[in-house]
């Protein structure tokens, strides 16, 4: 018989905050995944909302490509406010 697939669990700890990945679990389908996530990851009121996503539906970047993916941002200092010179008289900008 087939094994239960793997699901990734995301929990919003309270309204105003984003859902955060907190782990994974096995379940036969999405309803069971939600119920299991409730029992495994929110036994002490750690959440007000849960997302479950089948792990096989996630596409992840490969750390081997981190150079070409993320390095181009390193030398773009002009994207930060500290790059710009202002006279001392200018406050709150």
């Amino acid at each position: 018989m087939k094994n239960w697939p793997l699901w990734e669990v995301f929990v919003r700890s309270k309204n105003g905050l984003e859902h955060r990945h907190c782990g994974s679990l096995h379940a036969a389908d999405e309803d069971m995944a939600l119920e299991n996530a409730r029992d495994v990851y929110t036994r002490r009121s750690e959440g007000v909302s849960i997302w479950v996503v089948k792990s096989s539906n996630i596409t992840a970047s490969n750390p081997d490509n981190n150079g070409e993916l993320f390095e181009p941002a390193h030398d773009k200092v002009y994207r930060h406010p500290t790059f710009y010179e202002l006279p001392d008289e200018v406050k709150h900008m």
Partner: peptide
């Protein structure tokens, strides 16, 4: 139980 849950999930799908 595990088998039944899986069969049920597939049927639902």
């Amino acid at each position: 139980v595990r088998d039944a849950a899986m069969a049920h999930a597939e049927k639902k799908q």
